[in-house]
Write a protein that binds this DNA or RNA. Sequence first.
DNA 1: AAATGTGAAGTTGTTCACAGCT
DNA 2: AGCTGTGAACAACTTCACATTT
Lengths: 193, 193
Amino acid sequence: MKKSERPGIPRKTVYRLSIYLRCLARLRENGIGTVSSEALAKAAGVKSTQLRKDLAYFGTFGTRGLGYDVADLLVGVGHLGLALVSYRGFEKEGFEIIAAFDAEPGRKRDKKIKQPIYAMEDLPEFVGRHGVKMAIVTVPVSAVQEVANVLVKCGITGILNFAPIVLDVPEDVMVNNVNLAIELENLSYFIQD
Amino acid sequence: MKKSERPGIPRKTVYRLSIYLRCLARLRENGIGTVSSEALAKAAGVKSTQLRKDLAYFGTFGTRGLGYDVADLLVGVGHLGLALVSYRGFEKEGFEIIAAFDAEPGRKRDKKIKQPIYAMEDLPEFVGRHGVKMAIVTVPVSAVQEVANVLVKCGITGILNFAPIVLDVPEDVMVNNVNLAIELENLSYFIQD
DNA sequence: AAATGTGAAGTTGTTCACAGCT
DNA sequence: AGCTGTGAACAACTTCACATTT
């Protein structure tokens, strides 16, 4: 994994912002108008001081003595002109998975998904045409480096990798790893008997 | 998420141990007998000094001027009497997923899996009988807290949660969260334009 | 000469304590 | 009075520099 140095804002803060966003969305759904750092922090599973410190990197959103306006903070953190948005220019909160690629695109599947499934050969053309920047890769270890090579060649700069190996990619490609075995081992170490 | 304080050995070291283990296994498969901290660290995606520091928490395994014996280190780190093993008493390197539970156990599936699929009603009995301690939960947000409650009542003390909410569980239950949306957002923040 | 092991230094992230608004 | 915002203290983690061993 790479370190894109953006001094000032800790990686972990950015990471937690996503959690806050989600909690805020839920609060709004439930018609809750204001929330204290205490309450929001609890919902997010962090300490209230940490939440405030995290927000402080991006500006001041709250009203002292009162708390945060849920809608404002949602906008502030997630949408317009602040936080991630100011760096990346997202249009919306989420990501859209627009297509899937498989070595056997014609295979029968029981789950109906709305995304089209293409053959691996179609990938370069598709990525180029749609300006895709990120890919989720869930192929076996034996194939993953090769797939990564193809993706990189197509111009993908962010890879979410589920295979338990360290991918060899150029400096400017960011790889995030999700490794179930490691998560489990980690769990097993910390659980009580 | 909880902090089970086991002073001395950093959480992150424990986490990385799983990565080292996997790299070592691959080296052995390839018939490589010795490896330097430099090479192993590269395979694991960490700095060599960090690798050495990590190993140092558990003892000294290497030979100065030479490196580590792959087989010895595999044993040392992963198997007998050291590292995780000395705390947890694993029998083997990995974990076995012994059963799956689903609200619709009879549903047609295209992938054949070797684990039996049971109904949710059978879960408490099964967990009790097999002494299961950990569960991977991949149900939608709307159901996950309820499922977690059931698991906790059954005696599960480690939950790997894929739903994007913070689970409310007792102190002694450890929850690890895997959140794809957050991984993606995190990626998108750090990738270059 | 080559590579480990480790105290010390440096860096990053978290929590505290409290000043300052509303 | 209540709650945010923040400098300062603290804790965790990483890296450095080098002594030590083979």
